[in-house]
Amino acid sequence: MNPLRPHVYLIPILVLALAACSGEHTVEGTVVDYDTREPVPNVRVQTRQYGWKITRDSVVWDHPTVFDTLTDAQGRFRLDYEGADSAKLQATRKGYVPFTHWYEADSTAVIKIKRKDPQRQPVKFGLMRIGVENHQPFGWSFKEGRRALDPEEADVFPMFGSRTDWNHIRLTVSGGGGLQFISGPELEVEGDYLVYTDRAPSEGYAENLSMNFDEPGGVYFVRTRDGRHYAKFEFDPTRLATEGGSSGYTQGNWALLLVYVYNPEGSRYLKYEK
C-alpha cells in the first residue's frame, strides 16, 4: 500500500471543510467620540478569526488570523474579513478606552469610544457576589469588599421570588442607601456599560429595584447604607457570570458575579477603565 494514498483523500475533504466554515464578509461603519460625537480618525478596527490552516507538513485547526483597518478622516471604516458570520470587533487608539463588541457579518456599526482622562485616575474595581447559600440570600458590602448575610450589613441585598425562579431578583437597600438603574439604550451604547458612566447621579435613588433578565442591560448605581458613599455595578443579561448555575440555585447554592466600582472617599466619581 502506498503510504501517501490517505493524503490524496484527506486534502480534498479538508478543502471542502474549509470552504464550508469560512466566507468573505464585511463590517463597515463609523467611530465617534462618545462625549463629543465627533468622528475619530486613525482608529484601528480589527477582528481575529479562527479556522483551518494547511501547511506543507501539517493541518492546523483553530489557527488565528487578524484582519484590520484604520478609520479615515471622517471616522469611517470598512473591514473585510474571512471567517464566521459574526465578528468580534476591537477598536483601539491611544488616549481612548479599548472597545470590543460582536457584530453580524455585512452589518453597519456606529462605534462610540470613550476618551481617557489623564488628569483623573480610574477608581479601583472588583467582583461582587450576590445570591443564596443553603437557600439563604446574601448581599454585598462595598466598604468591606465581602458578602453579607444580614440585610442590615449589606449595601445591596437580593430578594428572590421562589427557589426555582432565579430570573426574578429584587434588589433592596438598608439605612441611607439607594439604587438607580441606567440602561444601555439610555447610555446609547451596546456594551461595556461601566466605561460610559463616570459619575453617580446625585438624586433619583429608590429603596428597591428589580433586575430584569429580559431587557437590555446597563449600570446599577448604589448609594451605600451610610448614605455617604457611592458604587456602581454592571448587569448584562446576555453575558452573565454565575456560580452554581440553575441546578445550584435549586439546591440553594448560587451566586451572580458582577463587576463593580466603589469610591471609598465618598465622592460620586466612579471612573472605570478596562
Rank of each mutant, 00 (worst) to 15 (best):
R228F: 10
G245Y: 09
G191C: 08
D236P: 05
T242L: 10
P201K: 10
A206F: 04
F181I: 02
R239Y: 10
R199W: 11
S247T: 15
Y193T: 00
T224Y: 13
L194N: 02
S247G: 14
F181E: 08
G184K: 08
L194R: 01
G204C: 10
S174T: 13
E215S: 14
S247H: 15
G176C: 07
L194K: 07
G248V: 08
A206K: 14
G248F: 05
E215T: 11
R199Q: 15
H229M: 08
G217K: 01
L240G: 11
L194Y: 08
E207W: 12
S202T: 11
A231E: 02
A241H: 13
Y196A: 06
D198Y: 02
Y230K: 04
R223H: 02
G184W: 03
G191L: 10
V189H: 12
Y193R: 02
E234F: 00
S183D: 01
P201E: 11
A200D: 03
M211P: 13
D192K: 11
H229Q: 09
V195A: 13
G245P: 11
G244V: 06
S247Y: 11
D214E: 14
F235M: 05
G184A: 12
G245S: 01
R223A: 04
L209E: 09
G184N: 13
G176Q: 14
D236E: 14
S247E: 15
Y196G: 02
Y220W: 09
L240C: 08
A200T: 11
G227T: 11
G178Q: 01
G227M: 07
E234A: 07
R223K: 12
G191V: 03
D226P: 04
E234L: 00
P185C: 09
D192A: 15
A241S: 05
V189K: 06
F233T: 06
A206V: 12
R199M: 10
Y193S: 04
G191K: 05
G177V: 00
R239N: 15
A200N: 09
S202I: 06
L240S: 05
N212D: 14
A206N: 09
E234M: 01
S183C: 04
Y205I: 00
A206P: 01
P216G: 01
G204D: 05
A200M: 13
R223M: 04
G177N: 07
G175Q: 08
Q180P: 00
Y205V: 02
S246V: 13
G176T: 07
D236S: 08
E234V: 03
G191M: 04
E188F: 06
P201I: 00
G204N: 07
E190W: 09
R228Y: 05
H229V: 05
Y220R: 06
F235C: 02
S246A: 13
P185R: 10
G204T: 07
A241V: 15
T238Q: 15
S183P: 03
E203T: 15
P201F: 02
D192Y: 02
G191I: 03
D198R: 09
L209S: 10
